[in-house]
């Protein structure tokens, strides 16, 4: 058994060096494809921070002053429920101070100045309003009315703050996703071609191996390991790239003026770790797929 593992590793390494140019091309393509995949994940996650307060078709947020009395809050609630034709009252949600504070932690993740000014006591509470009507003008005119109610601090409309970003986020996600998928397919193809070339270079050895009774798996394993390793190295390179990119981005965001939406676009470290792990896994997977196809198809040399 040990002889076999030793053999497989030796052969993998030898073949790796022999095909250095092709191997580099396969590794780099996998790395770039995976980097794009990683960037897609990160961009998505960053936008989510920004969009978290609008999640679930929320179109309007009525912010209530932190010093509003319970009667004032009740009045706002009743006023909102008085328009069931425009507002979906079943989906109307009231976020108290604790909930609003927790949400703000995400929105202002990259904006420590604003964050330090907020406390669970001073934060405005909020009504999240999901409209029943598709007519934005109707929602807007209601919003104008609510603005004058006692205790209301502000009324925010998704139309103003959210839709551009939401559309932008969807567009960026679609583009990066399609590009990374195409590149992943290219990476599989390049790994496939590298392994095929490696097998062709060693066709005489493979012929002898088959004649003396080596099993197909014994012949295949070094080649499959080689492909797996190429994908995995691509994954490692992509991880480094994602890490550097995210660091640069986080630093850049810190330079923005507090209070602009940009400061929400930050990805927490735990999530970054998860993305890096996923990149390694996907890298290994594309390597395994590419080489498995090559190794099963080109054994009859």
């Amino acid at each position: 058994m040990l002889t076999r593992i030793g053999y497989a590793l030796r052969e993998t390494w030898a073949s790796f060096r022999r095909n250095l140019t092709l191997t580099m091309a396969a590794v780099l393509t996998s790395a770039i494809a995976l980097l794009l995949v990683g960037a897609t994940f990160l961009i998505q996650r960053a936008f989510e921070n920004l969009l978290v307060q609008w999640r679930g078709d929320v179109a309007m947020i009525v912010f209530v002053r932190s010093d509003a009395s319970p009667e004032q809050v009740d009045l706002i609630d009743q006023t909102l429920r008085a328009s069931p034709t425009v507002i979906d009252v079943d989906k109307l949600r009231y976020l108290d101070k604790a909930e609003s504070y927790a949400e703000a932690q995400r929105i202002f993740v990259g904006d420590p100045v604003t964050l330090s000014l907020l406390t669970p006591e001073t934060i405005p509470t909020q009504f999240k309003v999901v409209p029943r009507s598709d007519d934005p003008a109707l929602v807007r005119s209601l919003g104008e009315q609510y603005r004058t109610l006692p205790g209301v601090e502000a009324v925010a409309l998704a139309e103003d703050e959210f839709e551009v970003i939401s559309t932008l986020s969807r567009f960026v996600r679609t583009v990066t996703l399609i590009m990374s998928l195409i590149l992943l397919v290219v990476a599989v193809g390049l790994i496939w071609n590298t392994i095929r070339t490696a097998m062709f270079a060693r066709r005489r050895e493979i012929e002898v191996m088959k004649l003396v009774g080596a099993t197909n798996w014994f012949i295949r394993v070094p080649f499959m390991l080689e492909g797996l390793l190429q994908g995995l190295i691509g994954g490692v390179v992509a991880c480094g790239g994602v890490w550097v990119l995210n660091g640069a981005w986080t630093n850049g965001v810190a330079g923005f003026k507090p209070g602009t939406g940009i400061s929400s676009l930050i990805v927490p470290g735990g999530y970054l770790g998860g993305v890096m792990f996923a990149l390694l896994a996907i890298g290994a997977l594309i390597g395994a797929i590419g080489s498995a196809i090559a190794a099963s198809r080109f054994l009859d040399v």
Binding site: T3, Y7, R204, E207, V208, M209, V212, A214, F218
Partner: peptide, 29 residues
């Protein structure tokens, strides 16, 4: 199997060529 064109592996020594046949069927060292 023996062939007219020997089918030896040119990058391996005599010993390695013969050992190869045992190695690839998993015989211990």
């Amino acid at each position: 199997n023996v062939f007219q064109d020997y089918k030896l592996l040119t990058n391996k020594t005599v010993f390695e060529n013969v050992a190869f046949a045992l190695e690839v069927i998993g015989k211990p060292r």
